[in-house]
Amino acid sequence: MIKVLRYTEYLYLAVAAISIYKIATLWSVDPKETYIFIFFAVVSIGMFIFRRRYRKRFEQRNKDNQQ
Score class of each variant (00 low, 15 high):
65 N>K: 13
26 L>C: 01
1 M>K: 09
48 F>Y: 12
32 K>V: 14
33 E>F: 13
48 F>M: 02
3 K>N: 13
32 K>A: 14
5 L>S: 13
47 M>L: 15
46 G>D: 04
24 A>T: 06
44 S>H: 02
49 I>V: 14
6 R>D: 15
17 A>L: 15
40 F>Y: 06
57 R>P: 01
5 L>F: 06
24 A>E: 06
51 R>Y: 08
52 R>M: 08
7 Y>A: 03
33 E>G: 02
23 I>E: 03
17 A>K: 10
45 I>W: 01
52 R>G: 04
12 Y>M: 09
43 V>Q: 00
66 Q>F: 06
37 F>C: 03
53 R>F: 11
55 R>M: 14
60 Q>R: 06
22 K>T: 10
20 I>H: 01
59 E>W: 07
65 N>M: 14
24 A>H: 04
12 Y>W: 12
33 E>V: 10
60 Q>E: 14
60 Q>H: 07
14 A>E: 07
63 K>H: 14
58 F>N: 11
22 K>N: 10
8 T>A: 08
67 Q>T: 06
47 M>W: 07
40 F>I: 13
24 A>D: 05
48 F>E: 06
66 Q>E: 08
23 I>T: 02
28 S>H: 07
29 V>T: 13
44 S>N: 03
61 R>W: 10
18 I>D: 01
50 F>G: 01
27 W>Q: 13
66 Q>A: 15
42 V>D: 00
38 I>W: 05
20 I>T: 02
66 Q>P: 00
24 A>I: 05
27 W>T: 05
50 F>D: 13
42 V>Q: 02
35 Y>K: 09
35 Y>E: 13
33 E>Q: 08
3 K>G: 09
27 W>M: 10
40 F>E: 04
36 I>N: 06
13 L>T: 05
24 A>C: 09
25 T>W: 10
39 F>C: 11
2 I>F: 13
21 Y>L: 12
31 P>I: 08
35 Y>G: 07
2 I>Y: 14
28 S>I: 10
53 R>G: 07
3 K>I: 04
33 E>A: 14
16 A>C: 04
48 F>P: 15
47 M>F: 14
58 F>P: 01
55 R>E: 09
32 K>W: 08
65 N>R: 09
39 F>E: 15
46 G>I: 10
26 L>Y: 04
17 A>C: 11
31 P>F: 09
7 Y>I: 11
56 K>H: 13
65 N>E: 02
16 A>I: 01
10 Y>K: 07
9 E>C: 12
28 S>Y: 10
13 L>V: 04
11 L>M: 01
3 K>C: 06
38 I>M: 15
60 Q>D: 09
37 F>E: 07
53 R>D: 09
45 I>N: 00
46 G>C: 11
15 V>M: 04
21 Y>R: 04
34 T>A: 12
59 E>P: 00
28 S>C: 12
52 R>H: 14
23 I>P: 00
63 K>L: 15
44 S>Q: 02
11 L>K: 05
20 I>L: 09
23 I>W: 02
39 F>P: 00
15 V>F: 14
67 Q>L: 12
